[in-house]
Nucleic acid binder design. Structure first.
Length: 244
DNA sequence: AATCACTACAACCGCAAGCGA
DNA sequence: ATCGCTTGCGGTTGTAGTGAT
C-alpha cells in the first residue's frame, strides 16, 4: 500500500493565501528548491510537498511569463502537439516562461477547440470530415500561409463546440503524436503535408526548467538539442496546413 | 436582479520513472 | 535484483468570473 504523500488531515488544501505564497517564496529564495517533501515543514507551511512544488512551478516562479499566448506560441504549441502528443512538459520546455500546466490548460480551453472548429481532429491533427469544415475554404488560400491563430478570431462559431468540449474531454487523453500514429517509416508529412516540422529543438534556459529530464527525453526522441529556440518557432508558412 | 451556462485556470490526484540503499 | 521513497507528469476536478437569458 502506497503511503500518502502527506498527512492529509494536517494539510491545507485549495487556494493558496498570500501568506502561504510569501512563506514559500521566502523559503525558496533562502534555501533554493530542495527536497519538496520536507520543504513544507521547514517553511512552516501546512501543505504537502507536492502542493508546494506545483504552486512554485506553476505560479510563483519568478521567470514565469504569464499573460496571453502570442500567436507564435500558439502555433508552436500546435506543431509540438502534433509532434509530441500530450507531452506537456516537453512542449512547455520549448516555451520559455510557460509551464506544462499552463500549456495544457491553454490547449484544452483554446487550441483544441480551435482545431475542432477548423475541422481538424486535435487528437491526431488530421482533417476530420465529420467535424465542421474550416471557414476559410478559399482555394487560393488552401496552401494557407495564414496562421491558425488568425484564422479563428471569430469565436462565435465556437459555441457549439464549446458545449461539446466537456463531453469530448474524456476522449482527449489518447492524443498521440503523429509520430506514434504513423506507420513505421512513414514520415509525419504524409498526413501533415505542409508541416515543415523541423525537429530540431533547443534547451530551455537552465534556470527555468527541469533540464535533465528534458534532455533525456529529447535523446529518446532523437531531437537535436543543439539548435536555437528560433529554429522551432514556426514561420507563418509552416503553420499547420492540414487540408489536402 | 436572478439564474443559468459556460470558460479559464488553479489545484488536486494517481501513476510511473528515477534513484539510492 | 528489489524495494521504498521522492519527484514529475498528465488527467481531472473545483470554482471564480463572465456573459446570456
Amino acid at each position: 500500500m502506497r503511503k500518502p504523500c502527506c498527512d492529509k488531515q494536517d494539510t491545507n488544501k485549495g487556494a493558496w493565501s498570500k501568506q502561504e505564497d510569501q512563506k514559500l517564496i521566502d523559503y525558496i529564495r533562502k534555501h533554493g528548491e530542495g527536497c519538496w517533501r520536507t520543504l513544507p515543514q521547514a517553511a512552516g507551511l501546512l501543505r504537502c510537498g507536492k502542493s508546494c512544488r506545483l504552486r512554485w512551478i506553476n505560479y510563483l516562479r519568478p521567470d514565469l511569463k504569464r499573460g496571453n499566448f502570442a500567436e507564435d506560441e500558439e502555433d508552436l504549441i500546435i506543431k509540438l502537439h502534433a509532434l509530441l502528443g500530450n507531452r506537456w512538459s516537453l512542449i512547455a520546455g520549448r516555451l520559455p516562461g510557460r509551464t506544462d500546466n499552463e500549456v495544457k490548460n491553454y490547449w484544452n480551453s483554446h487550441l483544441r477547440r480551435k482545431l475542432l472548429n477548423m475541422g481538424i481532429d486535435p487528437n491526431n491533427h488530421r482533417l476530420n470530415h465529420s467535424l465542421p469544415r474550416p471557414v476559410h475554404q478559399n482555394p487560393e488560400n488552401s496552401t494557407s500561409t495564414a496562421s491558425t491563430s488568425s484564422l479563428m478570431k471569430n469565436d462565435t462559431n465556437n459555441q457549439l463546440v464549446r458545449s461539446q468540449q466537456r463531453r469530448d474531454n474524456d476522449q482527449v487523453s489518447d492524443a498521440g503524436s503523429c509520430l506514434e500514429d504513423e506507420a513505421p517509416g512513414a514520415p509525419c508529412g504524409s498526413t501533415l503535408p505542409d508541416l515543415n516540422l523541423d525537429l530540431s529543438m533547443s534547451f530551455p534556459s537552465s534556470s527555468s526548467l527541469g533540464i535533465n529530464k528534458d534532455e533525456d527525453k529529447e535523446k529518446k526522441l532523437n531531437i537535436d538539442p543543439n539548435l536555437s529556440q528560433q529554429e522551432l518557432v514556426p514561420s507563418s508558412a509552416a503553420t499547420l496546413v492540414l487540408f489536402q
